[in-house]
Design a protein around this nucleic acid. Structure first.
Lengths: 146, 146
DNA sequence: CTATTATAGACTCATCGAATCTATAATAAG
DNA sequence: CTTATTATAGATTCGATGAGTCTATAATAG
């Protein structure tokens, strides 16, 4: 069980878009170069984010992608669910007259566990990531100065 | 991203073994029939549980599989990690001179989220599942009587 | 009108989950 | 000891899907 690379690209791209001046868009080419992935493939991933309402796109010169809302309002869960979908991680496969999946206690426990993960992903925004980057840069500059 | 069916079979089998009288073993055939899966495939899954030290096996007549410790001491996490392995769910793929995976904040957040899930899976034992089954049966019998 | 950019669809390739099949080894019972 | 029973190991197969390519189309700024 692993997250797909698409999720990887999506999260990093969203974080990068969060670094741009507000309202400014960037094309898929530079985004793809940074992440060492093909532009056509990355555009597929980003299109799913557009459809999920996380980013907005514009074709033509001066087009590209940009965030549609503040980084404070974009959670990890938003991005991940847009890419990975909403199906539960675990799905009980045992189904007979004495045990139906709707009431499987194993299923229930697995759902609870997944929910714990989701709660954390919902609490973590892209803004927090950018803050940590700022902090690291700041610390680095201080150490240089000192 | 999904848990494999092997995890599904492993959890249900462990729970079933927990229902057997202490010390009693059961062959792979009946276990496979219950779960509607081929005996050879299920045996592969169970062999990984043997190697993980969760169950014990014996060949020959009167052989089969049985638990090696109390259901109170077998957690969901034990079973899942035995089958799924220990690799993190997320692995940052962005690696260059300004961003190395070791220090990726996205990676860190994803690891934290995974840990939340694991903590819950570690807190939930097979014994808890069996207790819930007992309770359900008890409730059912009461409703029949009433 | 043209260069630039995103979108869509068909297609390919490799990986891996999910088995199956067969052969081998170990054990209890007769 | 022999035989039936059971687990283990390895090779192999099959299908689904992740990951990506390629090409064509549509939209937009200049």
């Amino acid at each position: 069980m692993k997250y797909t690379k698409a999720t990887n690209y999506a999260l990093h791209t969203i974080a990068y878009l969060g670094l741009l001046p507000s309202g400014k868009a960037i094309g898929v080419k530079p985004l793809a170069e940074i992440q060492k992935v093909s532009p056509t493939y990355l555009s597929k991933v980003l299109t799913t984010l557009v459809k999920a309402g996380l980013i907005i796109s514009a074709p033509g010169v001066k087009g590209g992608y940009r965030l549609i809302k503040d980084v404070e309002d974009i959670t990890f869960l938003d991005v991940i669910q847009a890419v990975e979908g909403l199906n539960p991680l675990f799905h009980c496969s045992l189904d007979n007259h004495v045990h139906d999946r709707e009431n499987c206690f194993i299923q229930q426990t697995m759902n609870e566990a997944e929910k714990k993960m989701e709660e954390h992903l919902h609490s973590q925004t892209i803004a927090l990531v950018l803050q940590k980057i700022d902090q690291r840069v700041s610390d680095y500059l201080k150490s240089e100065a000192g």
